[in-house]
């Protein structure tokens, strides 16, 4: 498992290739997810600031990965999360999972994404044409995360 918090951008192709090389021979599937800052429709978002508590944020994401891999066989999970000021179009987060079987790779990737939304110790502040505001967790995100807990398969 590798969890990195950074202000710098990341390179999906490079991360993918190095994961494939590390598990050459055993790796049968790699799933990836990249979150990107969007305008969010009528919200007309222009930027996103992500605040964090370095040590606790790191640990919270490591715990998410541990939970997401319970009852699944994966070779490796990589999470890269950016912090600080981002603009529309910037990459926010990368989740890469490698497994012998595609079902494990894709299921763990999706679980990590859902749990990141509700359990990662991160705070987002959106800015746009109507000013800026700290986001609050949505019930939809919590419902998706609860779904993994009650129906982990």
């Amino acid at each position: 498992m590798s969890v990195r918090l950074q202000t710098a951008d990341f390179d999906l192709a490079q991360e993918h290739e190095s994961m494939r090389a590390r598990h050459s021979g055993r790796c049968g599937a790699i799933s990836s997810f990249v979150g990107v800052v969007s305008e969010r429709g009528k919200e007309h978002v222009t930027g996103l600031f992500i605040d964090h508590y370095p040590s606790m944020t790191q640990r919270s994401i490591e715990c998410i990965v541990e939970r997401a891999t319970e009852s699944r066989e994966v070779l490796e999970v990589v999470v890269v999360h950016r912090v600080g000021q981002l603009r529309v179009g910037d990459q926010i987060v990368l989740v890469l999972t490698c497994a012998e079987h595609r079902a494990d790779a894709s299921a763990v990737c999706e679980r990590v994404i859902d749990l990141l939304k509700t359990e990662a110790i991160l705070w987002k502040k959106e800015s746009g044409v109507r000013g800026s505001r700290w986001l609050e967790p949505s019930e939809r995100d919590h419902a998706r995360a609860r779904g993994w807990v009650t129906n982990p398969g």
Partner: peptide
């Protein structure tokens, strides 16, 4: 002591 508001995740 950290005062931790509701997190909004990744």
């Amino acid at each position: 002591v950290a005062l931790i508001p509701p997190v909004t995740g990744g």
